Amino acid sequence: MIRLNNDTPSDVLQDVKEGDMVTDTFSKTGLVESIEITDDGLYRVYTFHLVTGRSIVIRK
């Protein structure tokens, strides 16, 4: 299981793929259904959509 939070290194965030089991250490745990990576000019935003319908958003 991969723990995703703001302390997670960028190379680990890049290596997460669909089907991986992830958690945000609080209440969101599940398999990754899809991944969106966007750049808002200030941060790179990683959005991991889980099969449970929840999303984990990390800004680096």
Rank of each mutant, 00 (worst) to 15 (best):
M1N: 13
M1I: 10
M1K: 11
I2E: 11
I2R: 09
R3C: 15
R3Q: 14
R3Y: 15
N5P: 14
N5V: 14
N5A: 13
D7P: 04
T8M: 05
T8H: 01
P9E: 04
S10N: 15
S10H: 15
D11C: 08
D11E: 14
D11R: 09
D11V: 11
V12H: 04
L13F: 01
V16E: 00
V16D: 01
K17G: 10
K17A: 13
G19W: 11
G19C: 09
D20N: 06
M21E: 08
M21W: 07
M21L: 08
V22G: 09
V22C: 14
T23L: 01
T23C: 05
T23W: 02
D24W: 08
D24N: 14
T25E: 11
K28Q: 07
T29Y: 12
T29F: 13
L31G: 07
L31K: 06
L31D: 06
L31Y: 06
E33L: 02
I35P: 02
T38D: 05
T38V: 06
D39F: 12
D40I: 07
G41S: 10
G41E: 08
G41V: 05
L42Y: 08
L42N: 06
L42P: 05
Y43A: 09
Y43Q: 15
R44P: 05
V45D: 09
V45Q: 13
V45S: 13
Y46L: 03
Y46A: 03
F48H: 01
H49K: 08
H49D: 08
L50R: 07
L50C: 12
V51S: 13
V51D: 14
T52K: 03
T52Q: 04
T52A: 02
S55E: 15
I56R: 02
I56G: 03
I56Y: 01
I58W: 04
I58F: 12
I58R: 06
R59E: 15
R59N: 15
